[in-house]
Simulated assay, not measured.
Amino acid sequence: MEKLRHNASKECPAPADLKDINGTKLCAQLYVDASPYYDQCCGGRVLPVPPGTDMPYLPRDWNDCLSSLVVAPRCELTVWSRRGKEGATKRFSAGVVYRLQEVRKGLLGDWDDSISAFYCKCS
């Protein structure tokens, strides 16, 4: 997996623009920080996710702290609420999710700070 980065601009990239530092297409990018303002939701630490990445156990500093995400066209990100791909699950297709707190998880929860595992694939 590519080194994590810091997004100083805070503006979420367009899904079609997801590329690593070498220009290779990414499957998704995951972000720690969110904001009440959509144009500032993708700030802070960035986890670039190449196609085919399977992370059943997120590192401690990424577990349960993701707040926004971007998925590239023709890609799908599947997330789980518990380590080892257990618990609630959700699939995200191409697009920007500015605030995971707006995505329902069950009756009373949301996906903000709730992702503990993921798999990302592209066709």
Rank of each mutant, 00 (worst) to 15 (best):
D64K: 10
D64A: 10
L66G: 04
L66K: 08
S67Y: 00
S67C: 08
L69K: 04
V70S: 09
V71N: 08
V71W: 02
A72V: 02
P73S: 06
C75V: 02
C75S: 14
C75I: 01
C75K: 12
L77W: 00
L77D: 04
L77E: 04
T78Q: 13
V79D: 05
V79M: 04
S81E: 12
S81T: 03
S81R: 04
R82A: 13
R82P: 00
R83C: 08
R83H: 11
R83L: 11
R83I: 03
G84Q: 08
G84M: 07
G84Y: 04
K85S: 12
K85T: 06
K85C: 11
E86C: 05
G87K: 05
A88N: 09
A88W: 11
A88T: 03
F92Q: 09
F92R: 08
F92D: 10
S93T: 14
A94H: 07
G95A: 06
G95V: 02
V96M: 06
V97Q: 09
Y98S: 13
R99N: 15
R99V: 02
L100S: 09
L100C: 10
Q101E: 13
E102R: 12
R104W: 01
K105Y: 00
K105P: 03
G106P: 11
G106L: 05
L107F: 02
L107P: 05
L107N: 04
L108M: 08
L108D: 08
W111P: 12
W111F: 04
W111E: 09
W111C: 10
D112N: 15
D112V: 01
S114M: 11
I115T: 05
S116E: 07
A117E: 06
A117W: 01
F118R: 00
F118N: 04
Y119L: 13
C120L: 07
C120M: 09
K121C: 06
K121T: 13
C122G: 14
C122K: 11
C122E: 12
